[in-house]
Amino acid sequence: MKTTRIMATALLLVGSGLTLQMAQAQQLEIQRTDILQQDLGVPGREAVQARVDFKPGAVSIKHSHPGEEVAYVLEGSLEYQLEGRPPVTLKAGEALFIPAGVAHVAKNVGSGKASELATYIVNKGTALVVPVK
């Protein structure tokens, strides 16, 4: 019984370490820079703008947002896979509307760096990015 608990604890620690390493590796591949956070005229809602830079081949985690997102590609090419829809690839100067709560993934499919200006209209005081399994 004691051996089983020790093994379970060891596996949990190793798994946690691997998850942390994967998250840290992704942070090196994708960098978000917050630009603006402003209350809206609608109570409980706010606008948030961020620049998101993707290194070549970088892929976001599958996630959603507590409100709408408008993704505007500043440079490079990004592929967006919204749950229930075929993938769409955008290049610099193109935009995509992502409805509230829709799980999605973004991937740099170009040969160089890619960047987007993400504008979120979200519920104030909630996590901006919600990981989805």
Rank of each mutant, 00 (worst) to 15 (best):
E46H: 15
V70L: 11
Y120A: 09
A100S: 10
V130C: 07
E46C: 13
V88D: 10
A127I: 00
M7G: 01
R5V: 02
I121E: 01
G67N: 08
L82M: 15
M22K: 12
E83G: 10
S60C: 11
E46D: 15
P99Q: 09
E68S: 15
Y120L: 13
L28Q: 15
G44N: 02
Q26C: 00
P99L: 07
H104M: 02
A95I: 05
L13R: 01
E68F: 09
G67T: 05
K124C: 10
Q26V: 00
G15Q: 05
G112R: 04
A118L: 11
Y80L: 15
G125F: 07
D39L: 12
T119F: 03
G67V: 03
Q49D: 05
L96Y: 07
V102C: 08
I6E: 09
V102Q: 04
Q31S: 15
Q31W: 01
G57F: 10
V130W: 07
I98Q: 09
G44K: 01
L13N: 02
L36E: 12
T9W: 00
A50N: 06
G67S: 11
G112Y: 00
Q81F: 02
Q27N: 15
P86F: 12
K91N: 10
K107G: 00
V14N: 03
P43R: 06
V129F: 06
I35M: 14
P66R: 04
A71K: 11
R85E: 15
A25N: 12
K107Q: 13
H104I: 04
L96G: 07
Q37L: 05
A58D: 02
R45K: 10
A106M: 12
T19R: 03
L40D: 07
A100H: 07
A47F: 14
A127E: 14
